[in-house]
Design a protein around this nucleic acid. Structure first.
Lengths: 242, 242
DNA sequence: AAGTGGTCTAGACCACCGT
DNA sequence: CGGTGGTCTAGACCACTTG
């Protein structure tokens, strides 16, 4: 799974953090870790740097490296805080099983907004599909997706009933590795109340995003409505150098 | 401003990109850049890596480094990719004037959770305040904040009625430059319905976050309830290396 | 096969923190 | 002052893409 040194270290440290192996919230210093793992300090720096970006830890020059207390409090059903996201395996909730039910699957013409979002000409068709996602048979998200047929000519309802992104990676030897997400909240509509079993006073979390391939090609435009109890998005934001 | 090598390179490359110095959308290879700038390849990698995280460029192993066409389009997609956020100036929507009304301002003992979040001993007091924020006199956000008195001894209701972060930067010569945000949705409660003028079926967007100073010191814990119509959070996410 | 980005090392020197 | 993270170098070797 993780034969890269820095990833191995990240996994290892995460595990230790989650097991409360650092009760004073402080990690060993970088030089010690380098010795402990028998790798160079640079590799440690890479691992810690990535973890800091993800908000798991933060570093204080002159003092040391500390665990972000908020990271330990990921109480809700699932949280995004970094890893994957919006995609099948990101709903990795303590071994509970994700499910997908395809509600519809068509080919349509993109409207103006969609043409913009996916860099399409009006003449280029897109697959349009709606999926209901479940955790342990509990529906928690309604997903509406659009993918240009030229980018995935063989897409089918069968594929949509599993992981589209896995299909892209295994069959098209491309990778979906970037996304621009817009997050908001909205009252639940009829569809949401029915499919997600919500009361009229209960809202949905909305995530709207464009997913990009390796090379920057916009691959999918997706709108996700999530049951608010299952919706928690964590984001570590660096307000400097931008 | 940018006496760091990698930052200098980022600035320089950004400028060149914006001036269309790379008409084929491809940057020189890393080794050439290293020679050109007379720095090590590692520094070039650091610069390019940061730019890739920000979505400005894409790297393709074996092929080269390319400019993200969306970055050149400079439209709304990248409006978030950095500066500010969730804080005063980020709600600067077309010159509308932000307002702040301080609902209360006290000094209290932190509870256990807050002690954790702000790295405090039980004996250390915090300022506790609630503010209503407005755009063009329309209330859109209820903010509850906690700041350790030791970090801002002179904090006052007056300061809270303007920008606390500006105060930190001008008076304490520190900078708030990182935050870990947790975003979710929730039904509106009585307070929200009253202050934000919401119907019972209308929700709030929730943002909970710890704001950090330059040196990693947790400075403020803040809970923000936003009128759902004014709540939109954008985030560019890199799904690789995680 | 040549070109290009990815990972990793070993070590130097700097800047900041706390005692 | 010693300890800690930050930046940078020089170079090795690997993995992927393209011709």
């Amino acid at each position: 799974m993780a034969d890269l040194i820095y990833k191995t270290i990240i996994d290892s440290l995460k595990k230790e953090i989650n097991q409360n192996q650092f009760p004073n919230m402080k990690l060993p210093d970088e030089r010690s870790l380098a010795e402990q793992y028998d790798v160079s300090r640079s590799s440690i720096k890479r691992a810690l740097g990535t973890m800091a970006e993800q908000g798991i830890i933060f570093k204080k020059r002159g003092s040391g490296t500390f665990i972000n207390p908020l990271y330990l409090k990921q109480d809700s059903y699932f949280s995004y805080s970094g890893k994957n996201l919006g995609i099948t395996d990101s709903y990795q909730i303590n071994g509970q099983k994700p499910g997908i039910k395809v509600l519809n699957f068509d080919v349509v013409r993109p409207d103006a907004e969609l043409q913009d979002n996916l860099f399409l000409k009006p003449s280029e068709f897109v697959y349009s599909f709606k999926r209901l996602r479940l955790i342990d048979n509990v529906p928690f998200m309604i997903e509406t997706g659009y993918i240009p047929i030229k980018l995935a000519p063989e897409l089918s309802e069968d594929i949509a009933s599993e992981s589209i992104f896995n299909y892209v990676e295994s069959e098209l030897s491309q990778e979906v590795n970037k996304t621009y997400l817009t997050i908001s909240a909205a009252p639940s509509d009829d569809e949401g109340q029915q499919l997600l079993d919500l009361a009229p006073t209960e809202p949905v979390g909305m995530m709207e995003g464009i997913f990009f391939l390796n090379d920057g090609t916009p691959f999918e435009f997706s709108t996700m409505k999530l049951h608010y109890k299952y919706f928690k998005y964590g984001s570590f934001v660096d307000l400097s150098n931008r």
